[in-house]
Design a binder for these strands. Structure first.
Lengths: 227, 227
DNA sequence: GGGAAACTAAACCGTCCAGTTCAGTCACAC
DNA sequence: GTGTGACTGAACTGGACGGTTTAGTTTCCC
């Protein structure tokens, strides 16, 4: 029902009253449209699609509802575009470069930290949650999210392991699998406590233990001498 | 706002017209109440809280809306109780017993399969998704879910690793951490493609490769000779 | 200063939905 | 067979919300 923009025009003109051009373009510059997007982002990410009314969005944006509808065709479109933008907004991580004499376990630990920073900061988590929640209603979102969020990180990690193979620092038979492993070894245990709003008790392992454990595990499994 | 039952009475009497006893008790036997619960489960788990109306529930249960309200105080209570029941309804997994001469890597692989079967079958996944989605609105649910779903599995795995330590089959310094690691090594890569309704392309590692990889990784890391 | 376009504020429409009410039916117990 | 209580079916209330319209105000450019 709601199609999503797959490209973001960088600049735009203000809305025109009765052309159909207001639908999916040109909100990048206009300050009102930006205020609306910002408000929508805050509200939707926090409360979900159903729980937020367009009146709330307008109020929070400091704008009349008519203006909201002047810039965005419908609630669905606004939501979908907001999520899409939130997906691609993630700053792209930079992994440390490898040298032949790198301390591989230290580098792995560093990488685990980067994964935590990028996948477990509040906004990506909120996006993740909302994609999961509204996935059935907006089936295009998961693909956009995966392609812009986890996938680039997986690719970088895969490249990293390829490079480690090449330098003889590791022996990784399936680098793509290794990439997912390192992600989930930290994302899993640490994500649970962040995704469930209510704090889960039951003595979770400490954050640093999880990170060090993941690095150690990758190293132990893929160390050249181990295989 | 919606408090949740933390105990399930096994038997119940039919509703009483004007006492306040209908709220959180006694839906276990009454066939109408059961039909309502069943319908609620199917609908809510599939479509989420907001997208389902009480008329739908009544219709699907083959019951009048008045009867629904005779058994359940409100939509919130019905939803919360349904989720709570779905949480505790999970059949409890049985892990293979260890002997001193067990083939530990084979056992680990078996365990990985059990984890997949228990955490990634359709209903637990649906519950997981809905907890994530409605978590902000029902803050008591995540704890109930975690305590009845993942936590027992984590405990069993922790015990398993303790036993493996005792038998000298593995050397696991932090058994609780190891339990979470084995869970997430399979749950992570395999859960993504199931949680996102739209199939995510981008050549995911094959299921069996993920499972074998997890078992191998645990073994390589915690093998007695490795440390 | 004049005109056009963006914007506001508020009323308004239609729809949907949670929850209530009520007259009447059915089944069963005494 | 009569009373009791669960249940039905349908109408209804009250409120929320998406989306539109309109009358009037601001802003800015020429």
């Amino acid at each position: 029902m709601a199609e999503i923009v797959t490209k973001l025009p960088a600049a735009g003109s203000p809305p025109a009253k009765q052309d159909q051009g207001k639908n999916t373009q040109n909100h990048a510059i206009n300050p009102k449209a930006m205020a609306i997007m910002t408000a929508a982002k805050e509200l939707f990410l926090e409360q979900g699609f159903g729980a937020v009314s367009m009146d709330q969005v307008a109020r929070q944006a400091g704008v009349s509802k008519a203006t909201v509808y002047a810039h965005f065709v419908s609630k669905e479109k606004l939501f979908a575009e907001m999520v899409f933008r939130a997906c691609i907004a993630k700053s792209h991580a930079v992994l440390p470069a490898l040298q032949a004499d790198s301390d591989i376990e230290a580098v792995l630990e560093e990488i685990a930290h980067i994964v935590v920073d990028h996948l477990l900061s509040p906004e990506p988590l909120a996006v993740y949650r909302i994609i999961m929640a509204e996935g059935p209603r907006f089936p295009e979102l998961p693909r956009a999210f995966f392609g812009n969020g986890p996938l680039p990180m997986i690719r970088k990690l895969t490249d990293f392991f390829d490079e480690a193979n090449r330098l003889g620092l590791l022996t990784v038979p399936d680098t793509r699998l290794a990439a997912e492993q390192v992600i989930w070894l930290v994302r899993g245990p640490l994500g649970v406590r962040r995704l469930f709003t209510t704090d889960v008790p039951a003595d979770l392992p400490a954050e640093e233990a999880v990170i060090k454990g993941a690095a150690r595990m990758i190293h132990a499994t893929y160390s050249p001498r181990a295989n």
